[in-house]
Amino acid sequence: MEPLNALVSVTNFMLIPALAYGSQLALGALGITLIFSILRFAHFAHGDTMALGTAAVIGGTFFFQSQGIGISPLPTALLAIPIGIVVMILYLLAADRMVYRYFRKVKAKPLTFVMASLGVMFVTNGLTRLFMGVGETRFEDGERFIFTVREFREFTGLAEGMALRSAQAITIITALVVMVILFWFLNRTRAGKSMRAYSDNEDLALLSGINPERVVVITWTITAILLVLAGTLYGLDKGFRPFNYFQLLLPMFAAAILGGLGSPLGAIVGAYVVAFAELGITFAWRRVFSYLAPEGMEPTSMMQLLPVDYKFAVTFAILVIVLLFRPTGIFRGKVI
């Protein structure tokens, strides 16, 4: 029995990756939940917009790299994030101007907005592939590890190793900071409060002199920031492939609905639930249990509940189960 080794193993292969993945999902799901509560539609273009934002960051990264500008040991991409954010703010505001604003004016049904977001999704998808192609692009540079498996082993003297990749550490820290700032913004600033007021009661917000178009602009701006951060962190962690970003749509929506649509705190909790469940259920526990089991009783199978290919099934199953028992989600979100 070596519980310490088991703990290290589970931290290395499960907890750290899930924490990083959950943070990436949380930033994305926050955007979905914000758009839902302010603009009142399910934003299907979210995954592809994330991809385009990341593409802009990658462009900036390559430019800085070619100029020899860097912030080693940190990845150059961090330096390029502001570029991506500015590009995406402009892009999303342009999309709002050209597409969504008209439907707001004619008071179109929510599903018309969803269809329009499908249109934006196609366009964004095409643009991303136009710039980046469909293959994988890696843009991580700088120091790859905070500490490696070998360093950890030498330091602790344990048989089991653990590594912490810079991308993972940066992801977790950034997500934490961004969440704190977002909650400060929503709860402490006038603009943030006006957003919440608009989400709570549109008519009364109008009566109180809150300008809806301003609220909408602020919402897209925040969404752009969240999107670019989520996309870049995901890309640093796992590499950039447009299709993977599209596929993030399902876990992100699941996280937002799970937590309660319209509730930012819910989106974050939902994201970590989804991430831990996905990784926990598709994780091969054999190694961990071989440390825990008594001598001679080590497991012989992989001890993997489901193959990794079924991670969507896991997301989906959690969603079904939670909503069966609590249709409004964990944090009492809105029901459309």
Binding site: S194, R196, D200, N201, D203, L204, S208, G209, I210
Partner: peptide
């Protein structure tokens, strides 16, 4: 208004602040 005349998820103080938004 007769109905939905408050911001339900916001605190009482925030409701008053929003009243004074202009």
């Amino acid at each position: 208004p007769q109905t939905s005349n408050i911001f339900p998820s916001m605190t009482v103080e925030e409701n008053l602040e929003m009243g004074a938004f202009i």
